[in-house]
Design a protein around this nucleic acid. Structure first.
Length: 478
RNA sequence: GCCAAGGUGGCGGAGCGGUUACGCGGCUGCCUGCAGAGCAGCUAUACUCCGGUUCAAAUCCGGACCUUGGCUCCA
């Protein structure tokens, strides 16, 4: 397996620290608001990474932090008149709901910053003792000049880091020094006792405190989006490597590309964001996941209605094939002797795994799925596929789906689909009437009803079976 | 200014030294009372520009141009 490592800029052979055990950490959310679909992109990407590593037989401990103490939380809480703690709990809850709705189910543990305060303090104390940290009247800071490797992840030298857009705290020795502990400002209620008086942790320290607590000073994979490379991940490296004296903190740094809108980064500060909740009112979760997996995790992707619609249709193509295969299987008797795997299925599987082994190349893996689908469809039409072949294809599609976290065997549901029993019954009645007209070959009137209903966004599709079923435009409900 | 990621057919998006990517769309056929859906086949002057290396370059090297992001809030 190969993984593109941000640290070296190269694709490297994956070699876990402890044989079969993989420690994976991905930066979690700051819970002061609902998460947007840019977050979703990153978490879906790492959900698939975790799924695939597990599929390969690794034992994966996927850890995520929850930043539940932070400037933005305090600010938002003050604005809305609730306590920072209850605000954080509320949005943490909503975040977890969003993740569940997106099928992101592989995080083993979510660690709150506020539940790791002793570990945070211990790490800062060690840094102070080793001379990497200093105290001022506003807080405790990491002394960047004492850590020679600062900038190695973002490939920047010390000179480049002199530049700054935001005015640094005046008590710091260097503009590049970052906060480990923030001393209490007047009136602040969220504080903990520490050797430096009351205060709260800085932004970066919680992650290394958490990973040290659960993984130790070194671990396998750290993930996050591109924008965290600097300063956040750089700071994590500085803190932990300085405190432990062990290098590297992380073997493989994986960073996801942004989700853009009209070629611009989706960000709360730009106000161009769509929350996961809002998106899921419009689209099926799997359609969004498919959209995400259609591009490599490192590539930027542009979110648009059109792109989502394309993704939805592409996903439907696979589901349609899965459905046809199931139908064919029902028609024929079970075949007893499972001999060799169907060559087309074996080839698809090999290509799929090869693609995933190559830095989780999901678009290329999907190509293998589409190739299989086309091949199987063709052979069904030509009646040249055996029962075992169908069985193999069916099982293989199911496995592909599990690895990618997509359900190829379930009809998609739109969460926001409203059900209205009376309207439903009326439509059914119309359809039944129309069906009778069709049986009498009263085509003109039957077609007229279909056309009129279509104007009302109710689509009837005549087929062998499924009479009496309808869909509303844009939905996938059968 | 420094660092990073990009610029591929009508659209999305792989490939990164030689063979059809794939999907969406379009076209044709099959199916169907018709339409749609579905399936198959076909389709595309495609690789930002200029040099260079090579028998061979989207792919490697050099140089431009453009887009986006990071440079202490960011998934």
């Amino acid at each position: 397996m190969k993984i593109q490592n941000t640290m070296t800029g190269n694709k490297e052979n994956f070699q876990p620290i402890h044989n079969n055990r993989i420690n994976l950490f991905v930066c979690g959310p700051t819970v002061y608001d609902d998460s947007h679909i840019g977050h979703a992109r990153t978490y879906i990407a790492f959900d698939v990474v975790a799924r695939y590593l597990k599929y390969k037989g690794f034992s994966v401990f996927y850890l995520q932090n929850i930043t539940d103490v932070d400037d933005k939380i305090i600010q938002r809480a003050a604005e809305t008149g609730v306590s920072p703690r209850s605000l954080a709990r509320k949005f943490e809850q909503r975040y977890l709901e969003d993740m569940r709705a997106l099928g992101i189910t592989n995080v083993n543990y979510y660690a709150r910053a506020t539940e790791n305060i002793p570990e945070i303090i211990s790490q800062i104390e060690r840094l102070s003792e080793l001379g990497f940290a200093y105290e001022t009247e506003t807080g405790v800071y990491f002394d960047e000049s004492r850590f020679g490797d600062f900038g190695k992840l973002s490939h920047q030298g010390a000179e480049a880091l002199e530049k700054h857009r935001i005015e640094p705290d005046s008590t710091k020795r260097n503009p590049g020094d970052f906060s480990l502990w923030k001393k209490r400002q007047d009136g602040e209620e969220v504080t903990w006792d520490s050797p430096w008086g009351k205060g709260r942790p800085g932004w970066h320290i919680e992650d290394t405190a958490i990973t040290e607590n659960y993984f130790g000073a070194q671990y396998d994979i750290h993930g996050g989006a591109m924008d965290l490379i600097f300063p956040h991940h750089e700071a994590e490296i500085a803190q932990m490597e300085a405190a432990s004296g062990k290098k590297p903190l992380v073997r493989y740094w994986m960073h996801t590309g942004f989700l853009n809108v009209m070629n611009e980064k989706m960000a709360k500060s730009l106000g161009n964001f769509t929350t996961i909740r809002d998106m899921l009112r419009e689209y099926e979760a799997d359609a969004f996941r498919f959209f995400v997996l259609l591009a490599h995790y490192r590539s930027p992707i542009d979110f648009s209605e059109k792109a989502l619609e394309q993704a939805r249709k592409s996903l439907e193509r696979i589901r349609q094939a899965a459905k046809i295969i199931e139908e064919q299987l029902e028609k024929a008797p079970e075949s007893s002797a499972p001999e060799q795997m169907d060559p087309a299925v074996a080839l698809a599987k090999a290509k799929f795994l090869e693609s995933m082994d190559n830095d989780f190349n999901t678009p290329y893996a999907l190509k293998a799925v589409f190739d299989l689908v086309r091949e199987v469809n063709r052979r069904i039409n030509e009646k040249t596929i055996s029962q075992t072949g169908l069985q193999d294809a069916s099982e293989q599609l199911r496995e592909f789906g599990e690895i990618l976290g997509l359900s190829f065997y379930e009809v998609g549901k739109r969460p926001a689909e409203k059900t209205d029993a009376i309207a439903d019954n009326l439509i059914e009645l119309l359809i039944e009437t129309r069906q009778k007209l069709r049986e009498k070959k009263e085509w003109q009137l039957a077609d007229e009803i279909r056309a009129k209903l279509s104007e009302l966004d109710i689509v009837i599709e005549d087929a062998y079976e499924g009479v009496g079923k309808y869909t509303t435009k844009g939905s996938t409900i059968g």
